[in-house]
Write a protein that binds this DNA or RNA. Structure first.
Lengths: 101, 101
DNA sequence: TAGTCACATGAACACATGTTCATATATTTG
DNA sequence: CAAATATATGAACATGTGTTCATGTGACTA
């Protein structure tokens, strides 16, 4: 008989769920997909590309930044957002890779 | 100059977010981790392993089943849950793989 | 058939989340 | 300095989510 036990401690469970929640939204996945292609993009660029209101995008961006997914850089009037860790993109590839979805 | 465009259509964005939401919870990640080790487990076994109330686990399981992540099989009084697509586990590995988290 | 075990269900609640709108702040430009 | 541009903020609201509790249902057992 084989023993089965949770291999992930509760801290890691919480953390993983926290990160996944930050990703689990159509607009936010779109942001990640775009930032995966272009190292950095301004808020206006993201608004245009995603056809989305400035305020809404801003809320999403700040949300992702606060959770450690995105970083920012100011250049004049613009603020450029970028992926802190590009490997986050793998998550999206994983899902698109699952045949059933 | 390079063109940047959303590479994922909105249907896929919605779908990806939908699946990620189904995973993005500590208890549900725990369920996936356990089912990755043991092809199938009953509700009671999951309750014991996760130290969680039966009703709560049941809600989570049905939620994941309804979203296509889990399948069920009845054997006498027990109902056994299993992962429909084991590759979903990669998502969790992805996160634990990201250095920053 | 009555009792027990295993699981599902549904109401109710607190709490989190997504969105919109109006407005504030920072930076550049004229 | 005034106006314009780019972005952030915060209130308000609707909606979604996680949890608990009480109870229902199906299957085995004595």
């Amino acid at each position: 008989m084989t023993f089965t036990k949770l291999r992930i401690d509760s801290k890691k469970l919480e953390r993983a769920a926290y990160v996944l929640k930050a990703v689990a939204h159509p607009t936010r996945i779109g942001i990640i997909d775009l930032l995966d292609q272009r190292t950095e993009l301004s808020v206006t660029e993201l608004c245009d590309l995603l056809q989305c209101e400035q305020s809404l995008i801003s809320h999403h961006l700040i949300n992702m930044r606060d959770k450690g997914l995105l970083g920012t850089r100011r250049d004049g009037k613009n603020i450029y957002y970028f992926l802190v860790d590009k490997t986050i993109t793998n998550i999206i590839e994983c899902i698109n890779g699952c045949e059933q979805f």
